[in-house]
Design a protein around this nucleic acid. Structure first.
Lengths: 109, 109
DNA sequence: AAATATTACTCTGCCTGTCAAAGTAATTTT
DNA sequence: AAAATTACTTTGACAGGCAGAGTAATATTT
């Protein structure tokens, strides 16, 4: 299991990528992350909902209520055009970050 | 210039790698990072010295005073055996983090 | 039918890493 | 002598992430 403070700062990317594929609700995203990473990373509930709040305030995502099924009412999120642009920036940034960190990791692996 | 909150959590690795090569003092490390990254990343002074304090307390690095030259007295740091083991862990962790983030970046670049 | 588990979201208060700003001090350059 | 550069330290603040506790509805088990 990867420490979460090392993933810190990349949660926006991960979450945005998932809701870019299709609108999703919180619990679903949390499950999806666990599945895709094979449980190597799990987002904490409190963190996930904090990210939603932050991104919604910045108009990067929008929320709407979906059907109530299998428990509590689901709050779905969709990515806005602004959000798509933002995600694009994050993707570029990630490849630059990889380059930079790799610079210092070279010869150690 | 890469945002520093995206490098966050990797400063230990970067700094340890540099003092693994040879004992270094703070200002030198700061310069070296700028040079190697071609100014794509610069560590802030306050941050650098905070990292030193943290790593020294954990006995990952040790300090000693060197000659006074070109200004203030230099405080050199060396990596301890514990530090080498720690750095090793960080290197492994980095390749796992890359895999995980890349999982979510796939198809977007 | 009652108890338990699962699904699903929210809120509060805390911790940690990073940083701006200001300060100290010695040496080098102008 | 003044200014720039080298070099380190401290303080206080901020933001992201998280543990823990709570609310509420549906599904499953007993």
């Amino acid at each position: 299991m990867v420490r979460s403070d090392i993933i810190r700062g990349h949660l926006d990317s991960i979450i945005l990528r998932l809701i870019l594929e299709k609108d999703r609700y919180g619990y679903e995203i949390s499950q999806e992350i666990s599945i895709r990473t094979n449980n190597r990373f799990q987002i904490k509930e409190a963190t996930l909902y904090a990210v939603f709040q932050r991104l919604e305030k910045k108009e990067i995502i929008e929320a709407y209520f979906g059907d109530v099924s299998h428990g509590g009412k689901r709050k779905y999120y969709r990515i806005t055009p602004l959000g798509k642009a933002y995600l694009n920036e994050l993707v570029k940034e990630w490849s630059e970050v990889k380059e930079i960190i790799d610079l210092f990791m070279e010869g150690l692996e």
